[in-house]
Structures are given as structure tokens and as C-alpha cells.
């Protein structure tokens, strides 16, 4: 079932084109990793999808509705984890959750139950009575997430929820996202950290300059750009490496010896690792082996000519 769909969405800020005919479908139970450098249009895309800003052209469908898409009924089913820490510093963690639960229409015992549940979910139960001012960066981020969970959204949009926190807190948040997926929540997760997307996303959408430049699973995206495999083998006697015999093996395109490292470049799917290894082992002695695999960073670099992390041109 399609939870949300954007068709031909155009959004302009003056002369600047922020979204350029964006088409995107999000299906129930998916975690979509929306990846792109800073200023690529990720936040504009999600703000448009949430009805927070108007768009100039195109149409949006949410929960099967094409009319009154941003009705309160639909907003009730959605949650937003903002990039900024949008919590009240003067209220306790519990009061913050009570506020957002109340805004989403929860009352009385139900609200109390959901607030406790959300606090436990993000691991803040023991800090429920403290104000965010006394929290670490990671705890504040978790509270920011919990504020979007009390009303049990079917579709959760997380806008760079791990910006500026330590790796331990980041892992905690990623585990929380996994748990939400297990509960059946559909998630649109925007980030410019490709490791996060590689860990949690069932599908990746790459955005640059307001356009969706590609989408698919991590493996599909990598396969699309991968035309060769590289293996680096560290050997004990580099002088004895049988370069010509290695080149003669099926699938091997080239062999380089650099110091004590032999790099073997083969065509994708050649399946010659066993033969390569046994040959090097018997002549030169294998000390170590590394396979160079492309990742999303390479996908992004190949497609846009930019580094993912900072959006700077190479």
C-alpha cells in the first residue's frame, strides 16, 4: 500500500528551484533513506510532503487521499522529528511529551500511558522529571524523537535526527528506528551520513539540486555503478608474484604490484577469488587480504561528481 506519493512536485524560492519535478512513492513498512548533501532539497521535500510549505506545481497523495491531503486526520497519522531540537527547555522531558501528545489529541489516562511508553522507548524513563537543559546532546535528540512518537504515527519523517551527536547516541537512535520499523511504522529518514542509510534503509533515494537522481536498494545502487572488483593482497615475498599467470586467470583484467601489496582487478561476478588466492599463496605467501567494495559514497560521487558529506564539488 502506498502511504505517500509525490508527483511532479515543483517548489521555487524566488528564482531558485528547490524541488525540480520530484516524483516519489513511499510504501507501507519501508524505511526510505533520503540521502543528499547539504542544500540538496531534502528538508524542502519533507516540508512539502507534510504540508508545512506550499508547492508550485504537482500533486501529493497521502494515505490514499488526493483531496484535503493535509487534513487534521492525515496529520494525526504522521509524525515529524525535526532537524533542530524543537523541545521546550523550560519543561521536563515528561511535560514535553505531554504537550506534544496533547497537541495530537491524546487525553487523560491514554496520554499518560503513551508518554510513559515513549519515554521508555527512547530510554529516558529515569530522566522523565529533568529538563532538557540537564541532558546530553544525545539525550536531547532522543527526547526530540520521542515527542513525535506518543501519537503512534503510521508515517514518521525524521529530518537528520543524528546531527551533532556522539557515535554511541547515534547507534541508540538507529536502534530506535529499527524498533519502529518492527512495529510497522513507515519511515522517511533524511541524512547526509551514508553509513546510517546503509544500516537501516530498505530503499535509498538520492537527491541533489532538488532532483531525485536515483533510487533503489543499497545493493541495486552499488551494482549499477560497479563494473569491476578490486582485491588487495598483502604478500611476504612481492618479488615472486606471478603477475603474468595471474593475468591469465579468467576474469582478471589487470594486476598491479605496489610494495608488498598486489592489487587484482577483475570483472564483476568473475568468481575467481579462490584461484587467485591459491596461486598467490603458493608463490608469494599471503599475509592479508582486503576487498575494495564501492559504497553509497561512490554511488553519489559517480552520479553527481560531488562528495556526499559536504556537497562540495570535487
Amino acid at each position: 500500500m502506498t502511504i505517500a506519493a509525490m508527483q511532479g512536485i515543483v517548489k521555487r524560492y524566488g528564482n531558485e528551484l528547490a524541488l525540480d519535478y520530484v516524483d516519489l512513492s513511499i510504501h507501507e513498512g519501508e524505511i526510505i533513506g533520503l540521502l543528499g548533501p547539504n542544500g540538496a532539497g531534502k528538508t524542502t521535500l519533507i516540508h512539502t510532503l507534510l504540508g508545512m510549505i506550499p508547492f508550485d506545481k504537482g500533486s501529493i497523495q497521502l494515505f490514499g487521499r488526493t483531496e484535503k491531503v493535509f487534513s487534521h486526520e492525515n496529520k494525526q497519522k504522521m509524525g515529524l522529528v525535526t532537524q533542530e531540537l524543537t523541545v521546550f527547555e523550560d519543561l521536563t522531558a515528561k511535560e514535553n511529551l505531554e504537550f506534544f501528545a496533547g497537541v495530537y489529541g491524546l487525553k487523560g489516562e491514554e496520554r499518560k500511558k503513551r508518554v510513559e511508553e515513549a519515554l521508555a522507548f527512547v530510554g529516558l524513563s529515569s530522566n522523565a522529571g529533568k529538563t532538557p537543559a540537564k541532558f546530553s546532546g544525545g539525550m536531547k535528540r532522543r527526547l526530540n524523537i520521542a515527542c513525535a512518537l506518543t501519537h503512534h504515527p503510521k508515517f514518521l519523517i525524521m529530518d537528520e535526527p543524528t546531527v551533532g551527536i556522539d557515535p554511541q547516541s547515534r547507534n541508540h537512535i538507529l536502534e530506535t528506528v529499527e524498533k519502529l520499523r518492527e512495529q510497522g511504522t513507515t519511515i522517511l529518514y533524511t541524512t547526509h551520513y551514508m553509513e546510517e542509510v546503509q544500516t537501516i534503509a530498505s530503499r535509498v533515494v538520492i537527491v541533489d539540486q532538488g532532483q531525485i537522481i536515483t533510487e533503489g536498494t543499497v545493493n541495486e545502487l552499488i551494482a549499477n555503478i560497479q563494473h569491476e572488483e578490486k582485491i588487495n593482497i598483502d604478500v611476504s615475498t612481492p618479488g615472486d608474484v606471478p603477475v603474468e599467470r595471474l593475468k591469465g586467470l579468467e576474469g582478471v583484467k589487470n594486476v598491479h604490484v605496489d610494495g608488498s601489496t598486489v592489487q587484482i582487478i577483475s570483472t564483476v561476478g568473475s568468481g575467481n577469488l579462490d584461484r587467485v588466492l591459491s596461486l598467490v599463496k603458493e608463490t608469494s605467501g599471503v599475509v592479508g587480504i582486503q576487498a575494495e567494495k564501492p559504497d553509497l559514497e561512490d554511488v553519489f560521487l559517480t552520479l553527481t561528481g560531488k562528495q556526499l558529506r559536504d556537497g562540495e564539488e570535487e
Partner: peptide, 13 residues
């Protein structure tokens, strides 16, 4: 300043 108004724009209010 904190972005709470922005967050509320996504809520049913």
C-alpha cells in the same frame, strides 16, 4: 526561535 512553531505546522493544529 526553537522551531517549535515549525514543528506544530506539521501537527493537527
Amino acid at each position: 526561535q526553537k522551531g517549535v512553531v515549525k514543528r506544530l505546522a506539521a501537527a493537527p493544529v
